[in-house]
Computed example of a mutant assay.
Amino acid sequence: MKKSKASDVAILAIFIAIMVVIQILSQIIYSVWPLPIVPTLLHIPVIIGSIVLGARKGAFLGLVMGIISLVNATIVTLPSSFLFSPLQPLPGTNHGSMWALVVAIVPRVLVGLLPAYIYKLMPRRFGAGLAAFVGTATNTVLVLSFIFLFFRTVTHQTFGALLASIITGNSIAEVIIAVILTMAIVPALTKARQHA
């Protein structure tokens, strides 16, 4: 039992390290990226961690993802930074909004919870793919919906624009990448944990 807990903590630490590396590399690569599609990849370790380690540890990884997003938005000032950090002022003001914490954290915690339950209902490769789809869709739909709910007076976004932003090349690319990687990695990681 102790060995299993130590193993889970080690795996959790590895997932967090992978997330930090993905964030740093994404910043570097996307700064010179020539294509208009810029998929988010940070949710993939959260989804895989949720499936392999369970909902509680998945939710923790989701929280870490949210904190990474919050710290990044606080340090790197972009036109959208105020949506993810209360320390970035809303356009035309000198203060941020606490709703940014909800946008940055809540969807990401759910990205860590839902895939574990989806995978329990439908294990094996298909379950891993479905869990990846649900986790990715949760991130996209909730982040954009929360931005619409809490910041539409600032962004002047309409409901039609919200729907259009959910179904974009970015969203489709994120789903495809997440499903392929999750279906490839989860079986190998699950088997490795069983033999550890």
Rank of each mutant, 00 (worst) to 15 (best):
T158G: 10
F150A: 04
I166V: 15
I147Q: 11
F146T: 05
L163Q: 05
V154Y: 15
T155M: 09
L144S: 11
S165H: 03
G160V: 01
V143Q: 14
F148Q: 06
F159Y: 12
I166H: 03
L163T: 05
T158S: 15
S165A: 14
T158V: 08
V143G: 09
F146R: 05
G160N: 12
T155Q: 08
F150Q: 07
V141F: 14
I166T: 01
L144W: 07
A137H: 02
H156S: 10
N139P: 00
F146E: 15
F148G: 02
L149A: 10
T140L: 14
G160H: 09
T155P: 08
S165Q: 07
N139A: 08
S145M: 12
T140D: 12
L142R: 05
V154G: 04
F159R: 01
L142F: 12
N139E: 11
F151K: 07
F151P: 03
T138Q: 10
T153I: 09
R152C: 04
L162W: 13
A137Q: 12
F148M: 07
Q157D: 12
F151L: 03
F151I: 00
R152V: 06
F159P: 01
F151D: 02
T138R: 10
I147V: 15
T153V: 10
L144H: 13
T153W: 00
A161D: 13
Q157I: 09
A137Y: 13
L144Q: 15
F148Y: 15
H156I: 05
A161N: 11
F146M: 15
I147D: 06
H156R: 12
S145N: 10
F150E: 05
V154P: 01
N139L: 11
F150H: 04
V141L: 13
R152M: 07
I147K: 02
T140F: 04
A161W: 06
L163N: 09
T155K: 05
R152W: 08
F159G: 07
A164Y: 06
V154M: 09
V154K: 00
L162R: 01
T155I: 05
R152P: 03
L162V: 04
L149R: 06
T138E: 14
S165L: 12
N139F: 11
A137S: 13
T158M: 08
T140Y: 11
S145F: 13
F150I: 01
H156Q: 13
L149P: 04
V143W: 07
L162Q: 01
L162C: 03
N139S: 13
V154R: 05
L144D: 14
A161G: 08
F148P: 01
L149Q: 05
V141Y: 14
Q157P: 03
L144K: 14
A164C: 01
F150R: 07
T140I: 15
V154T: 14
Q157Y: 04
L149N: 06
L162K: 01
I166S: 06
A164K: 12
S145V: 03
I147W: 08
G160R: 02
T158E: 14
